[in-house]
Design a protein around this nucleic acid. Structure first.
Length: 170
DNA sequence: CCCTGATTCGC
DNA sequence: GCGAATCAGG
């Protein structure tokens, strides 16, 4: 990774973090980054400890930290080209909430990920796509986040804060 | 097991 | 400054 943190991404991070999204959700939205990176940045920005339970500030105890030897270096595939569909950020703010006809989600879910109703589990995104009565209806099937029934992308749509919806509509 | 944020510290 | 590894906890 070489782009470091652009002002734009930092701004998005700030927004999503204060909106209450988890670090992994934010990492998913930003893409090409891990939740550790998000958390690390949040701390460096001094945004940590957003209205949350005290959860006993970790006293922490230092350990040897076994020599890392060779760094696994994030094996994340850098997205090049075709960024239109890849841009996470706030694309969803540009259209009215209409889950079944989501232009961004439609046709972007990998075939191998799509699920029929009998294939759904706690770990698969239950976001419905298409007409339930039609033959090509399917569920997103992505990996769910936190305790939500959806993947990060659909969680973001389902639990979009009311303020954001108002802002988007106006 | 899944997940969360917090922290350390090699790079 | 960055973020993987690790920790403590839910």
């Amino acid at each position: 990774m070489t782009w470091v943190w652009t002002d734009e991404r930092v701004e998005t991070l700030r927004k999503l973090w204060t909106d209450g999204l988890s670090a992994s959700q934010i990492a998913g939205e930003l893409g090409g980054i891990t939740r550790n990176a998000v958390i690390g940045k949040v701390h460096r920005l001094g945004l940590s400890g957003r209205a949350k339970a005290p959860s006993t500030a970790a006293p922490r105890q230092r350990k040897p930290r076994a020599a890392a030897q060779y760094a696994p270096r994030a094996p994340r595939p850098a997205m090049r080209g075709n960024t239109a569909l890849a841009q996470p950020a706030y694309a969803y703010l540009d259209y009215e909430a209409e889950p079944e006809q989501d232009p961004i989600t439609d046709n972007i879910i990998p075939m191998g990920q799509r699920c029929s109703i009998v294939e759904l589990t706690e770990a698969t995104c239950r976001w419905p796509i298409g007409d339930p009565g039609s033959a090509d209806f399917y569920f997103c099937g992505g990996k769910t986040v936190a305790n939500h029934p959806y993947c990060a992308h659909h969680c973001r749509m389902a639990y979009q804060p009311v303020q954001d919806r108002r802002r988007a509509r106006r």
